[in-house]
Computed example of a mutant assay.
Amino acid sequence: MTSLGTIPALRDLPPDRLADLGRRARPARFAAGDTLRRPGDRASDVVFLLTGTVVATHDTASGGEVWPARWTGPAIADKPAVLSGEPSPTGLRAITAATAGLLPAAGFLRLLHDEPQVRAHVLAALARDALAGRRELLHAVTLPAVARIASCLLDQDPQRRTAWPGTQDELARVLGLSRVTVNRALSRLTRAAAIQLTPGGITVTDRTRLAAFTAPGIR
């Protein structure tokens, strides 16, 4: 599975080590909506996500669903669930068609032990994710919906034409907001000419105007 080399954490592995990893990782394909893991299950395999998008899922008390994390290939999906060895409070689901290599958790741990560059990359990614999660929690507690959405869009890769390629419902699930709240906030940002809603998703048209909505006091 030579395409494993597209995953940033594995990019610098020697060719023979990468080839060996490819032989041990089981190829897998998922359709949109397929469940990779249910909440409460242990992560028996690490998911080397090659293409597509998967999300962590959690059901709310009101019968809704939130997506506290999201990965688009090439990437390693849900590393904490694998490394903890404990039942995960969140499930894992493909929201687009996806391809992946599945490596048993023990094999992933050996890889981290044997390959310092992979270990360093994974640790740095975990640190970034932890800080991002801390920031998102602070935003959820302290910011109104329009500011949270503006901040989320600003955090996306500015080189991408479409800042959010998904639907408004998907954005609501990622942020833990209602669909109505997201729709109202996006309408406000659109009227301010900060964003544009397109068939392909949400495009940032003016980052300065969008950033103004994250300022303290914005409601």
Score class of each variant (00 low, 15 high):
Asp78Ser: 13
Thr57Gly: 12
Asp78Ala: 11
Leu131Ser: 07
Pro89Tyr: 02
Val146Gly: 02
Thr142Ser: 04
Glu115Lys: 01
Leu153Cys: 08
Trp67Met: 10
Thr51Pro: 04
Arg134Gly: 08
Ala43Ile: 05
Ala147Ile: 00
Thr96Leu: 12
Asp45Trp: 14
Ala150Leu: 07
Trp71Phe: 15
Arg110Glu: 13
Arg134Glu: 07
Pro80Ser: 09
Gly101Pro: 01
His58Cys: 14
Arg135Gly: 09
Ala81Glu: 12
Arg134Asp: 03
Leu154Met: 07
Glu115Thr: 11
Glu65Trp: 11
Leu50Asn: 11
Val55Arg: 02
Glu86Arg: 15
Arg119His: 09
Asp129Ile: 00
Leu123Cys: 04
Leu126Asp: 04
Ala130Tyr: 05
Gly107Cys: 08
Leu49Pro: 00
Leu137Asn: 00
Arg93Lys: 04
Thr57Glu: 07
Cys152Gly: 08
Ala124Glu: 09
Ala56Gln: 03
Arg110Gly: 06
Leu153Ile: 08
Pro116Glu: 00
Gly101Gln: 02
Ala94Asp: 00
His121Ser: 14
Val47Ile: 15
Leu111His: 13
Ala127Leu: 13
Lys79Trp: 02
Gly133Phe: 08
Ala97Lys: 03
Val55Tyr: 06
Ala130Cys: 04
Ala124Asn: 07
Phe108Trp: 09
Gly133Thr: 04
Ser88Asn: 10
Asp78Met: 14
Gln117Arg: 12
